[in-house]
């Protein structure tokens, strides 16, 4: 039903200071390349890929997952239901 997803885990490591970290899931084949997620990501996690998906649009790729706090604005802004974020609590920070 759903094509392979590009997922990338936030590193629950010592570098992070934020209270939350996030994961972003992208369905490349559903994307229509509007660029809303890239434009309105508050922490600039995403960029448009130079490669195209099978429909000929440029889907987003994750360039800076360290900055993601899982606010899910990308999921709210995506008109094609191709991306969403998940928030996790960073246990080391509390």
């Amino acid at each position: 039903m759903v094509a392979a997803k590009v997922g990338s885990k936030g590193k629950n490591g010592t570098k992070k200071k934020g209270k939350f970290f996030g994961e972003v899931f992208i369905v490349r084949e559903r994307c229509k390349g509007c660029g809303f997620c890239v434009e309105f990501c508050p922490t600039k996690v995403l960029a448009l890929d130079e490669a195209m998906n099978e429909k000929g649009y440029h889907p987003p790729i994750i360039v800076n997952i360290e900055a993601c706090n899982g606010c899910d604005l990308c999921g709210l802004y995506c008109p094609d239901f191709a991306i969403h974020g998940i928030r996790h609590r960073n246990k080391e920070v509390g």
């Binding site: 559903r30 999921g75 709210l76 008109p79 191709a82 991306i83 969403h84």
Partner: peptide, 29 residues
Amino acid sequence: EMNPVEPYLRMDRMPHIWCSGCGIGIVVN
């Protein structure tokens, strides 16, 4: 890994007819 809208939508009808950059999908979200 499943988009939060998927349990509420008929995903067999996707992709939807709305154009790239249309705002109606945002209302659905």
